[in-house]
Write a protein that binds this DNA or RNA. Structure first.
Lengths: 265, 265
DNA sequence: ACAGAATTGTACGGGAACGAACAATCTCTT
DNA sequence: AAGAGATTGTTCGTTCCCGTACAATTCTGT
């Protein structure tokens, strides 16, 4: 794992209890009139494709900082989130930054979908939630058996590639305020309610900037009444305003995801 | 196309002649003892998989600025380069930056490999060269027919995803000198000889910084005798030194490419 | 209630890169 | 040879963000 994150996690490690996100978390039991899965990728699959996966899907709740993938180590399972989301973090010796975010719109373990078993990035839960784990073997064999499943998952990979490309663009051309806005909007898309629970220090690692810089950017957004800040928690008050603050850094990948995933399976 | 690039290209548009890169370009005729394709992806394919593609491969020379893919428009063909390379550029209303580089180690048209037909990015020839064009339909049907072909291409997609993730990291955490070093090394990997032909202005767009900033970064690298600068041309003099100058921003995607592509097809 | 720890607020000087402008040099065309 | 245009060199003040440090606040465990 990576420097700053390692340190952060060590601090928080032992006092955490295994709870779901406190906000207005919904019970995730299987209600009669609700789709079987809240995960949008699973929800989109045909019954046949779903049957390939279902026997191996294991419902779980995952806490913040739960590590799904460690750099350069074989991936054991992929994760279909129903709530909360994960972050993909690229790093070198002493630098790290988020390059991708995966919530209920997708699945972790992109290397597996592409026929590999590892990558130089870490992936971990950024915001606690529930979902389903699937062993990589089950994923692989299902993808071999079903062309439609494969097609859906690969289109999702493309959506993620676009998200990563836009992250590169954002990191290069947008200031901290805009990047913070973008991040909050992406988080908001993947959260029930309007609250995101994390510390400035964490956000700083994600955005690749100083912690103090995040604090000040948050204050500016709060002054504009776009968010509300509390210790360990940010609340989105004005999404439209945030989109303006993001200044164009948000939206392209999201539109592409819709285009890619709304077509026929 | 994008703002600054559009302007740059308009300037240079009409005076260009259709030549290969001047450096020490090799004749690319099919010599008896040489592999049939210099493109590493094609070279790696089994004879059967290659037979699926060969009838549709059309040898071409592509000039600088030749547009292979335009944002949000259907991709017509993919391109296997034998020499030279292409850049993938992500953009918003008035910002643009390179997010990926594709030379003879790969193929353009990642969206096609993932079952889509377009993306919000532009792709164009950055350094002139030769290679083979393949209509997307041929690509698609070949991928449907052959699982091994598909596997190889998808592993390449993964390599590109890692490159993009590292670009995001580089843009976030490295200064202009390191990023310039990284870019030159990546270009060097894809070029015959040690020369790269481009202007500071172009490089500025790729790196997402000011033209004046590039000029000064080049001067600093030249002072350190790592490169030689001439009008419209940079020459790599000391690759090892450049790697040091890149300060860790170069290497991870390249190592991953080797790992991914050196295994059994 | 208190101590200790984590989180957030704030300030300082410094440096990297910015936007803008203009000069100097090179190249191509005529 | 001259002129036009492209490219590169250089400078100015400015802005953003950095690294660092420390204080203030809030939470947690006992």
């Amino acid at each position: 794992m990576t420097h700053r994150l390692l340190k952060l996690w060590a601090q928080a490690a032992e006092r955490d209890v295994s709870v779901l996100l406190p906000g207005k978390g919904q019970a995730m039991s299987h209600l009669p009139n609700q789709p079987e899965f809240r995960n949008q990728l699973l929800a989109k699959l045909s019954l046949e494709d779903l049957d390939l996966l279902r026997p191996h899907l294991k419902p779980v709740q995952l806490d913040v900082r739960h590590v799904l993938e460690t750099a350069n180590e074989p991936i054991q399972q992929v994760y279909f989130a129903d709530s909360g989301f994960a972050s993909i973090v690229a790093k070198d010796a002493d630098r790290e930054t988020e390059v991708g975010m995966i919530g209920r719109e997708g699945v972790t373990g992109l290397p597996v979908l592409l026929g590999d078993e590892q990558s130089p990035n870490d992936t971990f839960i950024q915001l606690a939630g529930s979902g389903h784990l699937l062993p990589v073997d089950a994923m692989r064999s299902a993808m071999e058996k079903s062309g439609t499943l494969r097609a859906t998952l690969l289109r999702y990979v493309h959506a993620m590639a676009i998200q990563m490309a836009n992250t590169a663009l954002a990191n290069s051309k947008f200031n901290v305020d805009a990047r913070l806005g973008r991040w909050l909007l992406m988080a908001h898309d993947r959260v029930d309610g309007d609250q995101v629970e994390l510390t400035h220090e964490f956000l700083a690692v994600m955005l690749g900037v100083r912690r103090a810089g995040v604090t000040q950017a948050i204050q500016r957004l709060e002054e504009r009444k776009l968010i509300r800040a509390a210790r360990g928690r940010l609340t989105i008050r004005n999404r439209r305003g945030l989109e303006k603050a993001a200044n164009g850094s948000y939206g392209v990948p999201e539109a592409e995801y819709t285009r890619l995933m709304s077509g026929r399976s």
